[in-house]
Computed example of a mutant assay.
Amino acid sequence: MFAEYTTSELTAIFAMQGFAGLILFSVLVLMALGLAIIFGQMGVINMAHGEFMILGAYVTYLTSNLFATYLPGLFDAYFFVAMGLAFLATFLLGMLVEWGLIRFLYKRPLDTLLATWGLSLILQQLYRSIFGAREVGVTLPDWMMGSYPLTDVIEVPVNGLFVMALTIVITTGVYFLMFRSRWGKQVRAVVQNRPMASAVGINTGKVDRYTFGIGCGIAGVAGSAFTMIGSTGPTSGQLYIVDTFLVVVFGGAQSLFGTIASAFTISQAQSTMEFFLSGSMAKVLTLLFVVGILMLRPQGLFTLKVRK
Rank of each mutant, 00 (worst) to 15 (best):
157 P>H: 03
26 S>F: 03
23 I>Y: 01
262 S>D: 01
52 F>N: 01
244 T>C: 02
70 Y>M: 10
4 E>Y: 13
30 L>W: 06
141 P>A: 04
135 E>G: 14
282 A>G: 06
1 M>F: 15
45 I>Q: 05
277 L>Q: 07
90 T>H: 02
171 T>C: 02
4 E>C: 12
121 L>C: 06
17 Q>Y: 12
131 F>S: 10
305 K>V: 15
217 G>I: 00
56 G>A: 05
133 A>H: 13
172 T>G: 15
128 R>F: 14
180 R>W: 07
136 V>N: 12
95 M>H: 05
87 F>V: 03
136 V>P: 10
51 E>S: 13
157 P>M: 04
285 L>P: 07
74 L>G: 14
271 S>R: 01
105 L>E: 00
154 I>P: 08
158 V>G: 04
269 A>I: 10
182 R>E: 11
257 F>T: 13
29 V>R: 00
280 S>P: 13
53 M>N: 04
57 A>D: 12
186 Q>C: 08
159 N>W: 15
92 L>S: 07
90 T>S: 04
22 L>A: 10
281 M>N: 09
68 A>M: 15
37 I>W: 02
294 L>A: 00
228 M>V: 09
209 R>K: 11
65 N>P: 09
227 T>H: 08
106 Y>H: 03
140 L>A: 15
216 C>S: 13
132 G>Q: 08
100 G>A: 07
293 I>S: 08
86 A>L: 06
284 V>K: 07
271 S>Q: 04
73 G>P: 10
230 G>K: 12
48 A>K: 06
211 T>G: 01
214 I>A: 02
28 L>D: 10
286 T>Y: 00
127 Y>K: 13
115 A>Y: 07
62 L>I: 15
161 L>H: 05
70 Y>C: 06
275 F>H: 11
19 F>A: 11
91 F>Y: 15
239 L>E: 14
85 L>D: 13
160 G>P: 13
67 F>N: 03
125 Q>H: 15
265 T>M: 09
272 T>P: 13
211 T>P: 03
174 V>F: 02
25 F>I: 03
145 M>H: 07
301 L>K: 03
191 V>M: 10
215 G>K: 00
